[in-house]
Design a protein around this nucleic acid. Structure first.
Lengths: 147, 147
DNA sequence: CGTGTAAGGAATTCTGACACG
DNA sequence: CGTGTAAGGAATTCTGACACG
């Protein structure tokens, strides 16, 4: 019950409501503010304006795009093609998010262990797939579904 | 190879380098700026100062803490105990992050499907655990490990 | 095309004080 | 204790112009 509060929280905040100022995006990605403004003026990235006449705000997703564009530029791509490549990767973010929302049923942490319940294990629907953290890292196991 | 770029990216940015201004945290969480300043003055939450004499910056993690404190307050807890509860949940974030870093080996997306490789399936180490997105949602399956 | 900079104004955030309960 | 507000100053971001290649 309490753990649901946590997973709901994590599911809720990250992509949607969070906006970042241009300084924060620049700092996090290492891309100069003037670049960000130029890229936006060309339609390569987008920003919201929260209220009238206020400063630019970028979404978390846009920040990831910026980081991607930057890394393609570093690979030697032109800006235009770096943008194209980055756009194709949007689907990755969406996929990852969808997986998270769909499958992170529960999360439990005690002093020495952590456990992620990933829900029904399709090859054997009577079981739940559970990931447990042990000293050697995360390991999967199957447990009897209790509901 | 390209997909690794993506997962590395997602693993790299989210928690570490990102800082948010007080306005962004306030907007995302719905907690007034004056509250955030007061909570900080009491040591309930923390902020960095990026350079000398600059404005407050909060980390993503702190923003989640704020959201948690808010929700405990809404449940009727006093501020002090809401903070205590929220602190105990830090371990959840760390656990989640650790799982993600440890187990999201690869992510592939094509036109109609998406696939997350979660690595070795411990009950049968000759197999890899793979999550696939289909029309009905995400489903797990086991595939032969190829390396 | 793609980026940087100096300039002056606008929007945001700062602190310390005060108010209320 | 916990929160909000008005006040004046400081830090941040804005646009449009200009420079360079």
């Amino acid at each position: 019950m309490l753990t649901n509060k946590m997973t709901n929280l994590i599911k809720k905040i990250p992509i949607d409501g969070v906006t970042l100022g241009i300084g924060d995006v620049s700092r996090a990605t290492g891309v100069a503010q003037s670049k960000l403004r130029y890229w936006e003026s060309k339609g390569y990235i987008q920003s919201r304006t929260v209220t009238d006449n206020s400063n630019r705000k970028f979404t978390y997703k846009t920040m990831l795009q910026v980081q991607l564009i930057k890394s393609y530029l570093a690979d030697g791509y032109t800006l235009t093609s770096a943008v194209k490549q980055a756009r194709q990767r949007d689907v990755y973010l969406d996929a990852l998010r969808s997986f998270f929302e769909d499958r992170f049923i529960n999360l439990e942490v005690t002093d020495h262990t952590a456990m992620v319940d990933l829900g029904q294990f399709d090859p054997d629907p009577t079981k739940h797939l559970v990931a447990k953290r042990e000293a050697t890292g995360w390991h999967f196991q199957l447990v009897d579904a209790e509901n």
